[in-house]
Structures are given as C-alpha cells and as structure tokens.
Design a binder for these strands. Structure first.
Length: 595
DNA sequence: GCTCAGTCAAGCAG
DNA sequence: CCTGCTTGACTGAG
C-alpha cells in the first residue's frame, strides 16, 4: 500500500514482542470446528480444505461441572470452562478467539492445507457425532444435496441431524448462557457454513438442487445441531455480546441470543407480574426505514409493528395494541431496559444491511401518529441509558467523516492517493503534530526493480466474458484445483495458501469474478498516526470476513538489501513475502491424528 | 450504476 | 401441532 523511504523513528521505545492492541476480523478465511464441517463432510473440495479440527467430542477433557441450585430449588449445571487444547490432547485444536487477538498463538491455529478428504469424513454423517460412519466422495455430496432438497419441502423436514443433546455434551461452552468465546464460536461457525453453502451453490455440481438464502440455511444447519448460545430469553444485556458489536445478518443475532425474531422487529416475552400474566419487550431492531431517524443518536423514535394496509378488503387500518406493540407499552410503564439494535444499509455492498448492538434503552414516551395514508401507527420514544460505550453514535460520526474528512479531528489530507484510487484515502493524525510520513510515494501495485523471471511460462484461460464456478475447462479454475476461490460477492472461500486469479493473458473480461484483487479499493481507508507505533492503516467501514481489502504494494527489495539497511531502520515497513508454506512438525502431527 | 418489484423464507406467540 | 405475524436478502428488469 505504501512505501516509506524515510526513517520514521518510533522504534526506540517499542518492545516488539508486545502484542499490538488490535480489534481483529472475526476470521479471515472460513473456520469451523470439525463437527460442523462434517455436516457437509466427505468430499471436501480442496479449495475449502477443512480447518484442523476441534478436539473430537470424546477427547474433550470434560470440565468439572459445578452443580448449583437456582432460586426455584432446581439444580442447574454450570460449566464455565470451554474445552481447551491442552498438552495432553496433542491436537492443534483451538480456533483463534475471534475478537480477542493473540499474536502468540499462531501455532494453535494450524490448518490442514493439504485438502485431505478422508481425514474429515468422520463425524456427523447421520447417526452419531463421534463415531459417524465413513462415507466418501460423491456420496457425501449427495447427502448434502438431499438435505438441501429436503429443506425446500418444509413439511417433511428431518429431525436435527445428530441430535442436540449429544452435541451439548460435546460442547459445554455452548450451553445456554454464553460468553464471549461461545458467541464468537457460533458466529464464526455461521459464517463458515454460509460461505461454504455459497460455494456449493455456485458450483455447477449442485446448482440444480439448491434454493437461495445461504444465511437462512446456514442458520438452520447450526440451530438443528444445537450450535447456538444464550438460548434462554432474557431482558437486559446478553452474556458475551458487547455494545458496539456488529452483525451482518439478522440470523446471527438469533443464533447468539441478542434478538430472537428472525424477521420481526420487536422481540418480547410473556412474564408473570405478581399473580397476573404480563408481557415485556426484550429488544428491537431499527432498520431505519420507518422514519426512525433522530438527530440525537441516543434517541430512537421507534414505530410499532402491524400492517397499515389490509390487502383483503383494501382498507387502511390502525395498528393494534397487541403483541410487540403491547409489550413495548407495558415495558414503557415499568421502565424496563430494552436492547436496541441499529441497522444501516451497507455502504460498500448496497443491497445488504449491517446491524450494530447499541446497548440498553428505556422507553420514555409513546403515542399514536396518523400516517399520510390515514392509518394510526404506534410511536415509542426510546432513550439510551447513560454510561454505555458509544456505538451507533460513533458509527454515524464515521459516516460523516467519510462524507467530509476535513470535518474530522487531526485532519491532514483528504486523499493521500491523489485520485489514483476510486475512493479517497485520507491522512489523519490526532496524536501529535507530525504532518505525515515523510518521503512518501503512493503505489497501487508492486514495483519490481529487476525483471521478474517466471519459472513457468504464463498462459491465460479462454473463458468467454467471465469464468464460471464449476467450469473445469477454465485453466484458471484448474490451477485452483477445480475450485472457484471466491463466492459471487467476492468473498474468499479458498483456504489454500495460494490463489490463482485471472490475469492479463486471460480472455475473460475485467469484471470476471476471479479478479477480486484487481478491482481496487472499496472500503474507506485512512492512514493514521498511532500512539507509538508509527503510521498505520485503518478503515471506517465494517468489513465482512473474507473481503479483499487492498494489495500490499510497495517496492520489492532483495534479502541482502533488506539486511543492509539494518535493524530498527527501514525495516519498520519491510515484510518478508518469500515465505513458502511447508508442512511443519506440528502440522504433521495434526494430520496423523486425523488421517 | 441505481431503484424497485418480486420471491422465498424462520421463529415465535397464541 | 398448526396458523398468523413479522421483514430481510437477493435477483433481475427497466
């Protein structure tokens, strides 16, 4: 992305072994535990070679359960300890915690990159979690196909595969009350399966048998196998979910217990208030389409639910004080705390929406408003409780900054790329007085001082217009071992260390789906001054896992030249790009256990 | 590129 | 167990 010829000397006081404080992506590539993978198991296309698995259920050192009694005198089982890979279980088992970055745990994130199919055909193939029958290849594709067919026919839906009880035994971390780890786990599993379904759907092999909505189908796959958390409905905060958390699908919020309605905007439940039955609101999703907007980001004017137009007799009707509307009304009277989720249109992917948990609100007022059409609509004034960390407000501020970066604190330059990128890359410093990295040249791509000697002769594919997933005649797909590395929305599915994109020698058009890294910057990026670590790059846009962000561009230099410059000098921004993936001892261990 | 109509759905309460 | 209620995600036409 950038080159730095000059010494920005920030190295003296930095202990590089210290972990940089980063809020990471959920996951770069699809990651999911073996059990979940096995659901779509067997013929794993090598382009989606599975993650080195979680500990198999029977290998999990079951944590000592503490039995407590709850207020009603019933025993409750509380297993707070998530199964962890220990030295005794020599499996590289742990999936990196998604939103708790630990750079020192690389070795625990081993990937079986050899696409070994047999290793992962065990597991959830129908009868049992642990001892699942070995089925192979096309047969498993067939299973998947049939499952998805069955899904199409609602009435004949199968009971959950595997059974949820055995699943919970294997994954105590997912039992009822979640924590950060369970939430991350569920979200990561959701996204992996969703992307996997996309890949299956888009490959020719299965295209006939598939319906749409990979998000819903991924969610169903998880739900029917008990892979969800916080299943008990509750008011107030939800364990493991923090104010400001971002969600890319409504279903994600269902799976982690933030908002139980897959479509409905108001989630509520019945309660006993003294001796009489009552109802209370738990959470609302504001999708910003009912004129919910307010100038003050801590206030939400929420509209009640209910059709305003009766399609049968074509009459405009008033909303009724029932269901969600009634629950909001009752909660207003009791001053209940209600969770609020704010939805906005994704600025990068215009057809999609993004949701942010904005914390707890109280309903301060409610009234009926007459719409233009003549129907009455319930309105609720919801006010954010003080003392919560800023979430939606920051998001809105980011929108403002994107529209006009000069309005922002520490603004230096609106577009560092000087118009080279299709969207501006701004330069900011709200830390000190430095006005930018010196001797700075903006590069779009790699700069090779020496001509690049290709080992193999380069040739391109002959695809007409665009390469199509599943088309094995395409030489680029062949080079990717038969798999299309991206989904139709340009999300990465391949887990291979190397991806072959179409290039200048290919016949296909520039909008071919196998040219993701050639489409330029899509997210709003800014170069900013860090506190003590020189200049960095960050974005103001929520980025979906698997999204291509930008090319790591700059000048290519020799190893010798890199060493000549010496420690603590220009190596601030030098990256070693020549590393070739090799099976390490640990990977072999991993393979031998499963293979 | 943008909008809009059309299509198909999950999970809850009752 | 079944029905009614809710709206998102995505596609393709204009």
């Amino acid at each position: 992305m950038m080159e730095n010829n000059n010494t920005v000397n920030t190295s003296e006081s930095i202990d590089k072994s210290k972990i940089v404080e980063v809020k990471p992506l959920r996951s770069l590539a699809p990651v999911l535990p073996n059990n979940v993978q096995s659901f779509f198991s067997g013929q794993y296309p090598s382009g989606f070679s599975p993650f080195c698995s979680f500990v198999k259920p029977q290998q999990i050192p079951v944590p000592k359960e503490t039995v407590q009694t709850d207020v009603d005198g019933n025993a409750t089982v509380d297993s707070p300890v998530a199964p962890k890979a220990t030295r005794e279980t020599p499996v590289a088992a742990k999936v990196t915690p998604i939103r708790s970055y630990k750079s020192s745990h690389d070795e625990e994130v081993n990937v079986n990159r050899d696409g070994d199919v047999d290793s992962f055909s065990e597991g959830l193939n129908g009868d049992d979690w642990g001892e699942g029958s070995r089925k192979r290849g096309t047969q498993n594709i067939q299973n998947c196909k049939e499952f998805l067919k069955r899904k199409k026919n609602k009435k004949t839906r199968e009971p959950p595969i595997g059974g949820s009880s055995s699943y919970f035994a294997a994954f105590p971390l997912l039992r009822e009350d979640g924590d950060r780890e369970s939430v991350n786990y569920v979200l990561m599993a959701f996204d992996s399966i969703r992307r996997r379904i996309c890949q299956l759907e888009e490959s020719k092999e299965l295209s006939n048998a598939l319906a749409k909505r990979p998000d819903l189908r991924a969610s169903h796959a998880l739900t029917s196998n008990g892979i969800k958390t916080n299943t008990r409905r509750r008011a107030g905060g939800v364990p493991g979910i923090e104010v400001g958390d971002i969600f890319f699908f409504r279903m994600e919020m269902c799976l982690v217990g933030l908002h139980a309605q897959s479509m409905g905007g108001i989630d509520y439940m019945n309660i006993k208030d003294g001796s009489k039955d009552d109802t209370m609101a738990l959470s609302v999703v504001s999708s910003g389409v009912y004129g919910d907007e307010s100038k003050d980001n801590d206030i939400l004017y929420y509209s009640g639910s209910g059709e305003n137009f009766n399609k049968k007799d074509k009459h405009v009707t008033d909303q009724k004080l029932q269901r969600g509307n009634l629950a909001l009304d009752r909660s207003a009277q009791r001053h209940d705390e209600v969770r609020v989720i704010r939805g906005l249109r994704d600025t990068v992917n215009r057809s999609a929406k993004i949701y942010m948990y904005d914390g707890l609100y109280k309903i301060e007022d409610s009234w009926i408003e007459m719409e233009k059409s003549g129907g009455g609509v319930f309105k609720y004034k919801m006010v954010r409780l003080p003392g919560q960390k800023s979430a939606f407000a920051s998001w809105m501020l980011a929108q403002k900054w994107k529209a006009d970066s000069s309005s922002r604190n520490g603004f230096i330059l609106a577009d560092l790329s000087n118009g080279i990128e299709s969207i501006p890359v701004s330069l900011v410093n709200d830390v000190d007085d430095e006005k930018g990295p010196a001797f700075f040249t903006y590069f779009m791509s790699l700069k090779n001082p020496k001509p690049f000697g290709l080992v193999q002769r380069s040739f391109g594919c002959n695809c007409n217009k665009a390469c199509i997933p599943g088309d094995l005649n395409c030489s680029c797909i062949q080079r990717n071992e038969g798999d299309f590395p991206y989904t139709a929305n340009s999300i990465l599915v391949s887990r291979k260390p190397l991806i072959h994109e179409c290039g200048p020698m290919c016949q296909c058009f520039p909008n071919c789906k196998n040219r993701v890294s050639q489409t330029g910057l899509k997210q709003y990026m800014e170069v900013f001054k860090t506190k003590g670590r020189g200049w960095g790059l960050r974005t103001l846009d929520p980025i979906r896992a698997g999204t291509f962000i930008c090319e790591y561009a700059g000048e290519v230099i020799d190893r010798e030249k890199a060493y000549q410059n010496g420690e603590g000098d220009t190596d601030e921004y030098v990256f070693d790009t020549s590393r070739i993936y090799l099976l390490t001892e640990r990977h072999r261990t991993c393979k031998s256990i499963h293979g």
